[in-house]
């Protein structure tokens, strides 16, 4: 049983090293105050708040930090009334 498990599984340390390198690269940038993703998030929300009253419950934000590419998804429900008024 243990032998089979030993051979059937790849080593987990390389995965740990990769995860840490990626995480620390992002965190070191954040400590220096240049967390671009967070800055974009705040500015996008700020820009929208200038035009419409945003209900916090109607905003969904997802981030995924990657080695080459990160993604930021901001999903905001804008009520019809607000859109009409702004137009």
């Amino acid at each position: 049983m243990n032998l089979r498990r030993l051979f059937s599984r790849s080593r987990s340390a390389p995965a740990a090293r990769d995860r840490l390198q990626l995480l620390l690269a992002h965190e070191r940038a954040a400590v220096g105050g240049s967390d671009l993703l967070a800055k974009l998030r705040d500015e996008i929300l700020g820009a929208i708040a200038k035009h419409v009253q945003i209900d916090g419950d109607k905003v969904s934000i997802k981030m995924e930090r990657g080695a080459q590419v990160s993604t930021l998804a901001v999903d905001i429900e804008i009520p019809f009334e607000a859109a009409k008024k702004a137009a």
């Binding site: 995860r19 990626l22 992002h26 998030r41 916090g56 997802k62 981030m63 995924e64 930090r65």
Partner: peptide, 17 residues
């Protein structure tokens, strides 16, 4: 760890729901 957007302190300080 790659998907953290907001945290406990943000919620307590009213910066996020």
């Amino acid at each position: 760890e790659r998907r953290v957007v907001y945290d406990l302190v943000n919620v307590i300080q009213g910066e996020a729901k």
